[in-house]
């Protein structure tokens, strides 16, 4: 057992500040454990969002010493013992209270992406054939746990507040999951260019760095989508060739 110091944001949209706490911690504890212990013993009304405590649901996103992370997958032993660990809510979304933010905007974005639309079944029994090598690329994007840490770190949202014009890396990942799905037929390039605002992304790769699922957001999702958008909307020769060879 060792006493560790934390500075935790407490407050609402109107007023709030970092508050200092000391918490008795055991071997192997993660930041979420410390927050729970704090809640149980000292701050019962402290708002914290979590579910699985195993890095699988993406509920416990926050900023730990300023960097976006899952609280349940961040071990205390990764931080020096002589300094307090700061825990603050995500900054790209409106605060609800303490460590909890209003992430409903993300759900709105998710609803607007043109949904999956399969080609006609390959077999008379209504099934398809797909091979492992074909599903592996989109499977990377399906690992997304909707933690929204990438949204939090992306400067287009975090600094410039372009929530009305840009769906953010998490939903570019979602769009890529559909676009690279071997059965999908829908064309999302128009949507991505206009409503989705893919042009706002200038490939800084910050999103990739924070993704707890190690999804290579920029290289594997955003760049290929950008190429599709360019091919479909800006490059007449490619479009012509595309039409010629599509047959």
């Amino acid at each position: 057992m060792a006493m560790r110091r934390f500075e935790v944001f407490r407050g609402t949209r109107e007023a709030g500040a970092l508050q200092e706490y000391g918490v008795e911690c055991d071997e192997g504890m993660v930041v979420l454990d410390a927050m729970h212990r704090l809640q149980a013993d000292q701050a019962p009304d402290m708002a914290v969002r979590w579910n699985c405590k195993a890095g699988k649901c993406g509920s416990c996103s926050a900023e730990i010493n300023g960097s976006p992370r899952l609280m349940c997958m961040t071990r205390l032993s990764d931080y020096p013992e002589d300094r307090p660990i700061t825990v603050t809510p995500m900054r790209a979304f409106p605060l609800v209270r303490d460590l909890v933010t209003d992430v409903s905007w993300n759900y709105e974005m998710s609803r607007r992406i043109p949904p999956f639309q399969p080609r006609a079944p390959d077999n008379p029994d209504g099934t398809w054939r797909m091979y492992q090598y074909e599903v592996e690329r989109p499977q990377e994007f399906r690992k997304c746990i909707e933690c929204f840490l990438c949204q939090d770190v992306c400067h287009v949202l975090r600094t410039h507040g372009k929530h009305a014009e840009f769906i953010g890396p998490a939903f570019l990942v979602r769009a890529a999951a559909y676009e690279l799905h071997p059965l999908d037929m829908a064309d999302r390039t128009g949507y991505l260019k206009d409503e989705g605002g893919i042009g706002y992304c200038n490939i800084t790769k910050c999103c990739t760095e924070v993704c707890p699922e190690d999804i290579r957001i920029t290289d594997n999702a955003i760049i290929p989508l950008k190429e599709r958008v360019v091919d479909a909307h800006y490059d007449p020769i490619a479009r012509l060739l595309g039409r010629l060879f599509a047959r």
């Binding site: 399969p118 079944p121 492992q132 599903v135 799905h181």
Partner: peptide, 16 residues
């Protein structure tokens, strides 16, 4: 099978 028709990407057998 219905989940697959709705977009689920299950791991595959050799014959797809």
């Amino acid at each position: 099978r219905e989940l697959e028709a709705w977009g689920a990407l299950f791991d595959r057998t050799e014959d797809g």
